[in-house]
Design a protein around this nucleic acid. Structure first.
Ligand SMILES: [Zn+2]
Ligand SMILES: [Zn+2]
Ligand SMILES: [Zn+2]
Ligand SMILES: [Zn+2]
Lengths: 140, 140
DNA sequence: AAAACTTATGCAAGCATTTGCAATTAAAAC
DNA sequence: GTTTTAATTGCAAATGCTTGCATAAGTTTT
């Protein structure tokens, strides 16, 4: 289990207030090793501090995205999932049929990244992508 | 302006009913050359047939996706957009800062596609993708 | 330490999309 | 051509997420 200290210090360095709500959201993200959803974060936060509103959770997530501290990825299942950037970059293949998720090293997309930068001068945000499709089993 | 005949015949070939609602949704998609949203489709449909519900539009879009006749792509702006598959494959680079959209030939992702198939036996659905990031102007 | 200003939160309403269910419509069986 | 069965729709409610606005909490200025 990791500390959430680095996330928290990054926040205060940038001049944002360290409210109890924000600390709890940060904690929930930093201490989760899978890809956590807003509702899971909210449940953890509310357990310790009952008067938090889910919109505060979403606003904190928004802030963390802007500061490049967490990524937001649609892995299917109707809700978006969050992951701390400093826990390492990778991607996922998501089977639309059975829901299976295959993990991918970040290097798989690095040649695409540099191609887009070279040919289109476009700096693509490919930090934590989900690519949908069909796995072997489900592809007939 | 294209005919919607091919979309319609594909539907009936597969044993689905050609209800007025479906015909109007199909028409709206086939006759739009940009990437049309559910609400734009709904507006066009309602103009000709006032008693249609937006959930029917969404259900028809769902059907068309399952039959591989339209793609659904998030190009930003808070609503998803639809495009007929038979109007040609391509992709987009979407600037998160200014909203600019750069068009991409489908070939840009074909080596990724074959890499994923070869190495992971995963058949990725890369028919109409939006890649987010920053354009030259907005990248400092 | 008040006053003035800024930031962050809670609440309620809103938005895009989905879902459950009962009513309608069409196709199939008799 | 009725009855039976299946597909499709409309409606209302639900879901995940966002936004506007007034209150609250924290900072800065005086
Ligand atoms: Zn991941
Ligand atoms: Zn699968
Ligand atoms: Zn397109
Ligand atoms: Zn831009």
């Amino acid at each position: 289990m990791r500390q959430d200290g680095d996330l928290i210090s990054r926040l205060s360095e940038q001049g944002y207030r360290l409210t109890p709500q924000r600390m709890l959201v940060l904690s929930a993200i930093a201490n989760s090793d899978h890809h956590i959803s807003a509702e899971e974060i909210y449940a953890q936060v509310v357990a310790k501090y009952p008067y938090v509103n889910i919109s505060t959770v979403y606003r904190t997530l928004d802030l963390l995205k802007r500061l490049d501290l967490v990524t937001e990825t649609d892995l299917g299942g109707g809700r978006v999932r969050y992951h701390p950037v400093d826990k390492g970059h990778h991607h996922h293949l998501v089977c639309q049929e059975c829901g299976a998720i295959i993990d991918l090293d970040e290097s798989v997309l690095s040649s695409l990244q540099s191609h887009l930068l070279r040919e289109y001068k476009f700096s693509a945000d490919l930090r934590h992508l989900a690519i949908f499709g069909r796995c072997t089993n489900c592809n007939q």
